[in-house]
Design a protein around this nucleic acid. Structure first.
Length: 339
DNA sequence: AACTAGAGCAACCGCCAGAGG
DNA sequence: ACCTCTGGCGGTTGCTCTAGT
């Protein structure tokens, strides 16, 4: 019944490969080509699991692999593709000749994720942290039955980490954490505006004068509007869906109501703030250009009506983004892509 | 010089879909 | 039809190296 096991897993070598073992794999492939990996250990004289041999070949020994560092163009492509299709590393790697899914995954986990976090962008959702906090304000804010701060003037009060938490990186963005809500304080928006305006100002001004082509700092993004706020907490959401799962029950039953006498902080800027890579390419998330933060009610009145992400359902948002993703990367989808 | 923390990366783990027996 | 394996994949671990103290 069934196939025999490929190897005795308790009796195979594990750990790092030696040059001698690599040579055996290379010799085997040169002689027999790529085929049944379960036969490789036996034919090549290796005391390794066939699966391990395959991994060694695909991730390291393949002659077409690049072993040099990632270029800025590759970085940008990874970020764009990750935004489009998530952590489908094999698909992303197929767009990067000479790179494996393991390479791309490692590079993302060690470099790009931190880089985006430092730039005030959540690497999971590719949304600016400010928008996430803004969304949270509408989830746990005055209109939420769980808020506990009802009765406070709505205009300037927002939920936020404390300045100290941001400064010492002790703030956790994991909504599943027991301490998650406890980290928030009710903060006067003006205070935060003052605190973060310096950061935003320097970011915008230096980006406009910078000619660097590598994504090395927040200065690599430029923002074309000035009234934005960037949060840079120490870590990102572990899982964006967790936030929606928390968020959805409160917003799905009834549309969010705005207090006419207290214009609210908008969730998204309708005049989509253009965020660009230093090389001039735009960085977009979802269906709108990258939005670093709030606009005020006054701005809203001067522009078009805001489209709050909490007004649209999560599913609608996903479907909208899906359409754009398919348009941007048509060859990544064969028509059978499902959520 | 010794120690520590963090970064980088190779390798492993566990799951899944499809295929073989 | 059922069971088990293979190949592929994403997530995670743990080792090595390096920079900082």
């Amino acid at each position: 019944m069934g196939r025999p096991p490929c190897c005795d897993k308790s009796n195979v070598k594990r750990g790092l490969w030696t040059p001698q073992e690599d040579a055996k794999i290379l010799a085997y492939v040169a002689k027999y080509g790529i085929g049944n990996w379960t036969l490789v250990p036996k034919k090549a004289g290796l005391n390794r699991c066939g699966k391990s041999c395959r991994l060694r070949w695909t991730n390291y020994l393949r002659p077409d692999l690049k072993h040099d560092s990632f270029t800025p163009q590759e970085e940008e492509l990874i970020i764009n593709l990750h935004q489009a299709i998530g952590s489908r590393w094999s698909l992303i790697a197929k767009r990067l000749p000479g790179r494996t899914d393991n390479d791309v995954k490692n590079y993302w986990n060690t470099k790009l994720r931190k880089k985006l976090s430092k730039m005030g962008i959540d690497p999971v959702t590719h949304k600016p942290y400010s928008q996430i906090f803004s969304d949270l304000n509408h989830t746990f804010g005055p209109e939420s039955p769980t808020s506990g701060i009802t009765g406070l003037p709505y205009t300037n009060m927002i939920l936020s980490p404390t300045i100290e938490q941001v400064q010492d990186n002790s703030f956790s963005m994991n909504p599943s954490s027991l301490d998650f809500l406890g980290q928030f304080q009710v903060t006067d928006q003006d205070t935060l505006q003052t605190y973060f305006s310096n950061e935003v100002t320097s970011s915008c001004s230096s980006s406009s004068s910078s000619h660097v082509t590598e994504l090395t700092s927040p200065q690599s993004y430029s923002c074309q509007q000035s009234q934005t706020q960037i949060f840079t907490p120490s870590s990102s959401l572990n899982n964006w869906s967790e936030l929606f799962l928390v968020h959805e029950p409160f917003q799905s039953t009834e549309p969010r109501q705005e207090h006419k006498n207290h214009p609210t902080v908008l969730l998204q800027s309708e005049a989509a703030q253009q965020c660009k890579f230093a090389n001039g390419n735009e960085y977009k998330h979802g269906s709108q250009a990258c939005d670093f933060g709030y606009t005020t009610g006054e701005q809203r009145n001067n522009g078009t009506e805001a489209s709050s992400s909490s007004v649209n359902s999560f599913v609608d948002t996903i479907l909208d983004q899906d359409r754009e993703i398919r348009a941007a990367f048509p060859d990544l989808f064969d028509g059978s892509f499902d959520y």
